[in-house]
Design a protein around this nucleic acid. Structure first.
Lengths: 103, 103
DNA sequence: ACTCAATGTAAGGTATTGCTTACGGTAAGT
DNA sequence: ACTTACCGTAAGCAATACCTTACATTGAGT
């Protein structure tokens, strides 16, 4: 199951920042790193982790390497969460209809 | 935003095992620990983290303490993921209609 | 009041992780 | 061919995270 890897990868704030930056569109490594408080090699390492979790795909363009989000890689995590949501919410409603959901 | 904390909490395999065990229904700390390869205090610590992320709620029953999943705590994470899914998938389809999603 | 059961917390050790600097490889431009 | 730009990887280091053992607390039962 790939959701485990996805969770582990998305848990890190910097790595998540890399991922969210790609939300704006495909970017090169240098472009991504320029907006973050870490070095470019650090970004490379994060991108490797994201790629290993199938959350991004890369493509060579000259010497540059363009990364973009690979949405299907989010599917397992989404499904896992959905299952949790449905089942747990049902059980929750069955348990206490009038609970406040806030903290 | 609470999805950050939820991600960090659910990233750990043992903690996720604790969480998934509660999927079967409310359980005491000892009951949860009995099915896991870690000590009971470790489970307590994981439960504290889960509670801090609002993913579980606890309730005293005698000296025991019954934990159960708090489904609304998953909402922020779910929304974040959904937003990602929709936007990124749209962009993805716009980019390449005929991609294989497999690895 | 005493004992037992169930749990939370503190302290310490070990492993993992994320970051930086240094280096090597590849493609474009002249 | 040389230089420049862009990137991935290796090595080393500091911080974080998880687990265990030991201890303190609280409630039930007699």
């Amino acid at each position: 199951m790939a959701y485990e890897k996805a969770l582990a990868v998305l848990a890190d704030p910097t790595r998540r920042a890399v991922f969210e930056r790609l939300r704006e569109g495909p970017r090169s490594v240098a472009e991504i790193a320029s907006g973050l408080p870490v070095s470019r090699p650090a970004v490379s390492q994060h991108l490797k982790a994201l790629k290993d979790a199938d959350l991004v795909r890369d493509e060579a363009r000259g010497t540059a390497r363009i990364y973009r989000i690979h949405a299907p890689g989010l599917r397992d995590l989404r499904d896992w969460l959905d299952g949790f949501w449905d089942e747990a919410l049902t059980r929750f409603k069955d348990y206490a209809e009038g609970d406040d959901d806030g903290g």
